[in-house]
Nucleic acid binder design. Structure first.
Lengths: 223, 223
DNA sequence: TCGGAAAATGAATATACGTTCACTCTCGCT
DNA sequence: AGCGAGAGTGAACGTATATTCATTTTCCGA
């Protein structure tokens, strides 16, 4: 009934700290590798080299390559779910402003993880069924702030959208598009002008009549 | 100065026919394989099996796997450049109707090659720089009908778009999205309702004031 | 009918990569 | 100081798969 060792607690704490540290080190290395050489370049050996550890060590902290990739994706999705709500709060009460802030925040997170953010689009033989389902669910969940903002706008009579979910999902897609089609958009746009122009276009479709003046600043298009 | 063989001409014709036949056979097999098992499943051995030929034969008609994939993509892009203009012509003179027809045609082509159409999004280590550039150029070219329709609509005063190119490219993206995010959209939509709803939403953003009634049929949403 | 050139075959080769494991190193405790 | 458990190592293994090539088959013209 008694523990074989009395020092379980402190051990566990140290262990946890190490796990935390190694996981972060590896996930950071994976992200770095991805942004530098593309997501195809993330092999276990390359990851080990980038992180400055041995191949075998990775398997002490992640069960498989799938697990690593899953964790990278989860990381990015986590960034959404902290950054975006924050930005929305800062935008104040107006649902239109909140929507604009949410979209901008999405785009900015994606811009700083351009490859990792679109890992989901890779028809990976790697990621198994369960992992894919989990990611899909998370992805839909992280689009919730957008959906909420659109719904609020409709309820407040400031937006008109027959299908708020479609509007929100399209905005999510356009945020992803900044990464997916970066080679195209970068020819003519910066991140800021992309956000501004896409937002202006989207708002034109859903802003209630007569509100153009109130949001003129959001409806302007880049020079 | 004289040819070693007098029968060069007929030979060449027969050769050409064979090349044509084999290429089609292989590209069709690749497309079939892709739609059935996903694009990751297209290995040279699987392709050979699906086409009912030997592995070595593929290399007689394509220099490498890259070449095969490139040809598959080119095939789909070719389908765009014949189908879409056709659909646009059938839609008559009205630029708004033409735009609607173009978008619908895009979506339909994509729907029938859901995996192949989206091969471009695979961050393939396979496809080399030159091939990717060629594809990018072709992809932009195939979006020309959309661009033209939007521009015409603006000139005719029926559409209002600060940046017609962005509008056209977004529509292209939304067509791709039917394939990219099929797992999401299929939950709530059919291809037809997808086309209708996306078109309605997009038109709301760009239709000139007072034209709502004239295009009420294009602006309706829902089942 | 026959010879040979082109077409086709598929086993073998090369390579890249995920995963494992026998071994070494580190460090806290006695 | 010495020991032992857990941390870390990296060569080796298995597998998948792109590519090659020696060999066989097909088929057309003489």
């Amino acid at each position: 009934m008694s523990e074989p060792q009395t020092s379980i607690k402190p051990h566990d704490a140290a262990r946890q700290a190490l796990v935390e540290h190694r996981s972060r080190q590896l996930l950071d290395a994976a992200a770095r590798l991805m942004e530098r050489d593309g997501s195809e370049a993330v092999s276990m050996q390359a990851l080990a080299a980038e992180a400055g550890v041995s191949v075998g060590l990775i398997y002490r902290y992640f069960g498989s390559k799938d697990d690593v990739l899953l964790a990278v994706i989860t990381d990015v999705l986590g960034a959404f779910s902290t950054t975006v709500p924050e930005a929305v709060e800062e935008a104040g009460e107006d649902p239109v402003r909140r929507l604009a802030a949410a979209f901008a925040a999405y785009c900015r997170v994606i811009d700083s993880h351009r490859h990792a953010a679109v890992l989901t689009y890779r028809e990976s033989k790697s990621l198994d069924e369960a992992g894919r389902d989990r990611i899909k669910r998370l992805e839909v969940e992280t689009s919730e702030p957008l959906r909420a903002a659109v719904r609020d706008g409709v309820e407040a009579g400031k937006l008109v959208a027959a299908d708020p979910d479609l509007v929100a999902y399209n905005l999510l897609l356009l945020a992803h598009a900044w990464a997916l089609k970066h080679w195209y958009f970068e020819q003519t746009r910066t991140l800021d002008s992309y956000i501004r122009d896409q937002l202006a276009l989207a708002l034109r479709a859903i802003l209630a009549d007569g509100l153009g003046d109130a949001y003129a600043d959001l409806l302007s298009v880049g020079r």
